[in-house]
């Protein structure tokens, strides 16, 4: 554990909590892509199956359970509790265009051809593109509330901090995880355009129409 990794995990947790609290307090999920949130729940589910097979640390176990619980709570709020406010007309990104290539790639490129490893690889690849329905929705409607942009900022910051963590680990431990690093860099690149808008235009984002 190093400071970049810890800051990355905290940033990830903050992002998820910002979104959950926004929906809970406003009793509305307007402007939020339910499809992205289902994909993130799928990411956590397929990645954290090792909760049942290996014990790493109390921190690791607790964080995994928290991420799983919060992601399912978010999906529940969007599709059940506050479904009247769900903007399904603008949440139209075709997720099969993400899922099919990601499933194919995880069978081709993995560390071992076993169910758990393939599912782990699937989760890493899927995470790198899971935000696309949300970014698509913002492009389609041309706007995002400031609280939604804070969510995206912390979510992008999380993977950027993980890159620093990987650089650190490579230099101090000689450790590197090629699949995670390549996917993490791709994932972070998707946020660059957003980061630019966030910094230059301030919180509330309107895309040029």
């Amino acid at each position: 554990m190093n400071i970049f990794r810890l800051a990355g995990d905290v940033s990830h947790l903050v992002a998820i909590l910002i979104l959950l609290m926004k929906i809970w307090r406003s009793k509305s999920c307007a402007g939020i892509s339910g499809r992205s949130q289902v994909l993130f729940a799928l990411v956590f589910t397929t990645r954290y199956l090792d909760l049942f097979t290996v014990y790493i640390s109390a921190y690791n176990t607790v964080m995994k359970v928290v991420f799983l619980a919060l992601s399912y709570a978010t999906v529940y709020l969007i599709y059940m509790r506050f479904r009247n406010s769900y903007d399904s007309e603008n949440d139209t990104f075709r997720v099969e265009f993400l899922l099919i290539p990601v499933i194919g790639l995880s069978f081709l490129e993995n560390y071992a051809f076993t169910p758990l490893e393939i599912l782990w690889t699937f989760s890493i690849f899927l995470e790198s593109v899971a935000i696309m329905p949300q970014l698509f929705m913002i492009t389609k409607t041309g706007e995002a509330e400031s609280i939604t942009t804070h969510y995206l900022f912390f979510l992008g910051l999380y993977r950027a901090l993980y890159i620093a963590n990987w650089v650190w680990r490579y230099h101090t431990e000689g450790f590197y995880d090629q699949i995670a690093i390549v996917s993490g860099v791709v994932q972070t690149i998707f946020y660059c355009d957003f980061f630019y808008l966030y910094v230059t235009r301030g919180e509330e984002i309107r895309t040029p129409s």
Binding site: D9, N60, Y111, L116, E117, E173, F175, D177
Partner: peptide
């Protein structure tokens, strides 16, 4: 560290 199972990152 090996890459299979027991990954310590989240």
């Amino acid at each position: 560290s090996d890459n299979e199972s027991g990954k310590d990152e989240l």
